[in-house]
């Protein structure tokens, strides 16, 4: 499998974990792909942490006027019945426990459900964005990632990168399998 095939496999598999009538937040990158593979018999609503519920992709004939973007700054649309709000309300929804599930990428996850996904000291410091709040507030946290990075394991006994949150991850989905984090 090449990288694209792996990502598609992971996205398809992780989409099966979503529950009918749930509010879901997808991280940038691989997790966003899951939106294309939601089973037809369930209805999921997406929350975008920059300030709305009802996120959807642009339709083919839809013009992009730049007024609605997703958490990666890419143009998107909003479903009928959706709503815009400010960032304080958005993170109130997140920390307040109204997001049923979040799917995030990760650099490392360990056996205690600790997750590192916002910096590699001295190398890469993109920042945590909304990830720390999502990990604290979402009812269920799913990590969707490749099993290894250039041959190095990403699922460890103990993370050695700075943590984004401790004991937060419920499920890990990779191209190798699905792992439940338990006590």
């Amino acid at each position: 499998m090449n990288k694209d095939e792996m990502h598609t496999l992971i996205a398809k598999r992780v989409a099966y974990e979503l529950e009918d009538q749930s509010l879901v937040n997808l991280g940038i990158g691989l997790p966003t792909k899951a939106a294309s593979y939601i089973p037809r018999d369930i209805k999921v609503t997406f929350q975008s942490e920059n300030g709305f519920v009802g996120l959807r992709g642009l339709k083919d004939d839809e013009t992009n006027d730049g007024t609605i973007v997703n958490a990666g700054g890419q143009p998107v649309g909003i479903e009928k019945g959706g709503a815009f709000f400010d960032s304080a309300t958005s993170f109130g929804i997140i920390r307040g426990g109204y997001v049923d599930c979040t799917i995030l990428g990760a650099l490392q996850v360990d056996k205690n459900g600790n997750i590192a996904n916002y910096m590699i000291p001295g190398k890469m410091v993109p920042g945590m964005g909304g990830a720390m709040d999502l990990l604290e507030g979402a009812k269920k946290v799913i990590v969707a990632m490749q099993h290894t990075a250039k041959g190095n394991p990403k699922i460890l006994n103990e993370c050695n990168l700075p943590l984004t949150a401790s004991q937060a991850v419920d499920l890990i989905v990779t191209e190798m399998g699905v792992i439940e984090v338990s006590d």
């Binding site: 997140i94 945590m128 909304g130 720390m132």
Partner: peptide, 18 residues
């Protein structure tokens, strides 16, 4: 930031707005 030209405090987004 890495070269020490800019002092950056990274704040979780929900905490920043609060």
């Amino acid at each position: 930031m890495t070269d020490g030209e800019l002092d950056v405090e990274l704040v979780p987004q929900g905490t920043l707005v609060e």
